[in-house]
């Protein structure tokens, strides 16, 4: 049972990491591309880290805190870096697809 939960979390995490990077490759516009890595990939890595924390907490007797530290750091820094990248893109007036809303003037 424990192995089943662990496997489900690992598969979910790997799948969302793949979806995020595929979105980065496939989407047509920088502001659309920003969605993939900052949401899907962060969720995927979060699921992988939770799986790892569960595994090492049950393998040894004490709670494994390393993974929680990495998760916390990643969840705090991902929005900050996404915000700064979007600001830089607006500043240099990046090319946009016609159907993106709120075009840069």
């Amino acid at each position: 049972m424990f192995e089943l939960i662990l496997s489900a979390l690992i598969l979910l995490g790997a799948f969302f990491t793949l979806v995020g990077s595929f979105g980065l490759y496939k989407l047509p516009d920088f502001f659309m591309r920003l969605h993939g890595p900052t949401k899907a990939t962060t969720l995927g890595v979060g699921a992988l880290l939770i799986a790892s924390a569960l595994y090492f907490s049950f393998k040894t007797d004490y709670i494994s805190m390393h993974e929680i530290l990495v998760t916390l750091f990643l969840f705090i820094t991902a929005p900050v870096s996404a915000h700064l990248m979007a600001k830089a893109a607006i500043h240099i007036k990046i090319k946009q697809v016609k159907r993106t809303q709120n075009q840069i003037k």
Partner: peptide
């Protein structure tokens, strides 16, 4: 990546992927 922000975003994604790979290696 046609512009510089695309490349920065790709680097950002690469390091997050590296973290995922390291966690999997640890497991």
């Amino acid at each position: 990546g046609p512009d510089l922000p695309d490349r920065i975003l790709a680097l950002d994604t690469l390091y997050i992927n590296a973290i995922a790979l390291l966690v999997l290696l640890g497991l």
